[in-house]
Amino acid sequence: MNYNLSNRNQFNDADYSLFPSQITQEEIEEQIQKAPDSVKKILQYYLLVDSENKYEEAKFILESFYKNKEIPIEKIKNPIVYKVIKTTRSIRRQIHKLMGLLRFHEVEGGYLYAPFTSDFDVIIPLSLHFAWRFPSERLIIHDIKREKAVFVEEGDLFEVVFHSMLPSETEDETFFQQLWKMYHQNISIQERENKKLQRHNLPIKFQHWLIEFEKQYIQGYLFEDEKLRLFYSQNGNNK
């Protein structure tokens, strides 16, 4: 796929002689992988954002690094660099958060299934984390909003297309969910109750898929959009 630099003046303090003006997205991705850590750290996850200009912006950062030997943080005054750094920071934060917040449901047939939604397209880094952590489990990780799913088996990732409904949850699953919900309520110290702090750490948007908050989302008022609600009414009401 060819990529044209449409809006040049935005990027006017870089030198374009280093990369040809027609450079493919794949080539940019390759360049990112080859870049030193200080640049890679900023750009590697940046491409997970849904933004039209992301390749252009990535290219800009790569070029100003190779030309002036400036690591991105040193150019934080530049609006593009700042935007990229800031966005990457939120993407990393969200990946980290979701690593803790995905909930796997054991379904018949020996699979563990985890649905989630997120602001960025983070299913691959998330799946890698769980592939490393649970190498002997068979996992299905499902980004509901983007309608993408990944199947993980023995550390390998495969793309999944759903043709049928998921199998139902196992008997064990019901039991451990019940046990976990009890634990979650029980561990709170009443005298210290602080819902504001809880929401600060665990914004409502993350609570949808947590079984310990289920009661709230079954009532329906927390759903961001119709798609989510629909998905849940089709697939989730067997609980």
Binding site: K97, R133, F134, S136, Q185, R192, N194, L197, Q198
Partner: peptide, 19 residues
């Protein structure tokens, strides 16, 4: 086996006291 650890730790939920 099963399981790994991260040097920065990981939170899995928050209880109603905010912890």
């Amino acid at each position: 086996g099963i399981g790994s650890t991260l040097s920065g730790g990981l939170c899995h939920s928050w209880s109603s006291d905010g912890r």
